[in-house]
Design a protein around this nucleic acid. Structure first.
Length: 220
DNA sequence: AACGCTTCCTGTTCGC
DNA sequence: TGCGAACAGGAAGCGT
């Protein structure tokens, strides 16, 4: 029995215990298939013969055994922000969560305590679609911009999920299949290429140690 | 509080 | 070809 919160995969083992799993940057969870070599850190042999392999070359991932009853208050899960695909997420909520934040809106989108589950790719893509500069202060965004951003976040996530996710290198689903959304990136990873909106070369900057890709003309 | 920088680790790509 | 540098889907932990 599987669940998810933010970027954590939750596997309910029985009535009392659950696994908390995070793939980090390079993690994979693979059902069956051949052994994966030295980066296969944990292998589950399930009832019925199914094998589940946790593979993570960079070891930024996480796998914890947790009490099911205490999951909501687990240190890793408590404090996570709203799920962007939940019905309660909208521009007004984003506006409230951003209020008073002095950091760049790009950094705020990556802050899992504000909105949960947005990573570097989808932060860049959502800001592009919303026409908002990643360098804008989060707390300075007005309601209208927050509404546009909220809609862009939902659209990007839904499209990415429908496309099976984004595979830069490592990511594959549990059946070993790569995603396709990387073919739909409008700015991420496209430094120097023409913006799909206006042709201006896409710029890359670094914010909080992470690459940000954006169009200086379309995103204000 | 909230912020920004550093760190964890391995693999791949890029420029000389 | 070899070799170091830069870079990569994340987020905790640390100072300030």
């Amino acid at each position: 029995e599987f669940a998810r919160r933010a970027k954590y995969i939750i596997i309910h083992l029985d009535e009392t215990e659950s696994l908390l799993l995070h793939l980090g940057m390079s993690g994979r969870l693979l059902f069956d298939g051949p052994p994966q070599g030295r980066h296969e850190h944990l292998t589950f042999h399930c009832e019925g013969g199914t094998v589940l392999r946790f593979v993570d070359p960079r070891r930024f991932g996480l796998l914890l055994l947790a009490e099911r009853s205490g999951l909501a208050s687990h240190p890793r899960l408590a404090g996570l922000g709203v799920e962007p695909l939940s019905p309660t997420f909208d521009g007004a909520l984003l506006h409230r969560r951003f209020a008073g934040r002095r950091s760049d809106v790009k950094a705020a989108l990556l802050d899992q305590r504000l909105v949960a589950g947005i990573g570097n790719i989808y932060a860049c893509e959502a800001l592009f679609r919303a026409g908002i500069s990643p360098r804008r202060r989060a707390g300075g965004l007005g309601r209208r911009r927050c509404e546009r951003l909220a809609r862009a976040i939902v659209a990007v996530l839904e499209e990415a999920i429908a496309a099976g996710g984004s595979s830069l290198r490592d990511y594959v689903d549990a059946d070993g299949r790569a995603g396709n959304f990387q073919n739909e990136f409008r700015v991420y990873g496209r430094e120097g290429e023409p913006c799909p909106g206006c042709g201006t070369p896409v710029r890359r900057i670094v914010q909080g140690g992470r690459s940000t890709f954006f169009c200086t003309r379309c995103q204000r």
